[in-house]
Simulated scan of single mutants.
Amino acid sequence: MKAAKFAYTRVFDVDEAIEVLAKGGGTAKAMSGSQSFGPMLNLRLARPAQVVDVANIAALRAVSRKGEWVEIGAAVTHAEIEDGVYPPLAAHPMRQVAGGIAYRAIRSRGTVGGSLAHADPAADWVVTLAAIGARIVLRSPRGERTIEADGLMLGAYTTVLEADELIVAVHVPSETPTTRWGYHKVCRKPGEFAEASAAVYFDVSRRRARVVLGAADGPPILLNEFAAEVASKGAQAAGRDKVSAAVGLALPDRDGIDRKLFTACVERALEQSGVFSNHKLAE
């Protein structure tokens, strides 16, 4: 199929992009790498009257360190993160996550902000950024607001973004000596959509402990009680029976096979984090 007719506008400034979106009155949509939005247009699952191309806005293509945070422009591509193009992300967990997204051709054009705005439950950034406690910066004619990454999605392909709002940046915590993290997903083959995923993040200095399930047909699911127990007790709280029980409570309507997939994802993410070699991750 081919896309329904739409007007195309390429912008080079954030304010211009927001102005065009606002004038669209809900009929204009921003596009960056187009790796998800493009197919939706061609399948006519999306039929905007106007497409606003924001991929070439310089302000959305920058990465900088701001204290304990790293600010990532929304139009930074997965491949640029994977390749360590930006020094503030050279040793960040996001590099490994980026390298596992779909295929290289898609990573070369797909962007962080575009992936978040698309809000596919199986997307890698949706679950990992929720786990590390990232913050998403949104801008509209009314000004700028910042939301927690775990509060972005309302449901599959549905977010809190208003029609005239644009994701302009993502703030992620910088690496510290106490950071431990892990991410694992199950796909039928490399590059396919995840059938189950899990991300874990522990940082004693920031008093943060997160275990998050992704690819669960909706927003990321936080296993807060389980994460707190693992942080305080270490390996003894992260046995298979404990993981399975936590997953079962989070996904009571899933069948046994699905729960085993998610349990395996949590276990392997915890193994990556080093939790099994540390008796206690928090005081």
Rank of each mutant, 00 (worst) to 15 (best):
A17V: 03
Q236S: 15
V97D: 04
V14W: 05
S32L: 02
T128L: 00
I136T: 04
T176I: 13
V76W: 01
Q272D: 09
G73Y: 05
T263I: 08
G155L: 05
S197F: 02
V168A: 07
T179D: 15
K23W: 07
A246E: 00
S34I: 06
A246Y: 02
D15I: 06
K23H: 09
D83A: 10
G114H: 03
R107A: 03
D253H: 11
D253R: 15
E283T: 09
A235M: 10
T146D: 13
T159P: 04
D164Q: 09
I81H: 05
R107L: 01
L129W: 06
V54I: 09
A30E: 06
I147A: 04
A105T: 14
H279V: 11
K23E: 11
V160E: 05
V211G: 07
F6K: 00
L116M: 02
E144A: 14
A28T: 04
H279F: 15
A17R: 01
V112L: 14
N56T: 13
T27I: 07
A196V: 02
K185I: 01
E175I: 14
M31R: 04
G234A: 04
E144M: 14
D253K: 14
K233C: 11
A62P: 10
G38Q: 01
F37Y: 10
A238Q: 12
A46F: 11
F37W: 02
H92W: 08
G218F: 00
I132W: 13
S244Q: 11
V172E: 03
T178V: 07
N278T: 12
A198C: 04
E144D: 07
D258S: 08
L116I: 04
D83C: 09
G155D: 15
T27Q: 10
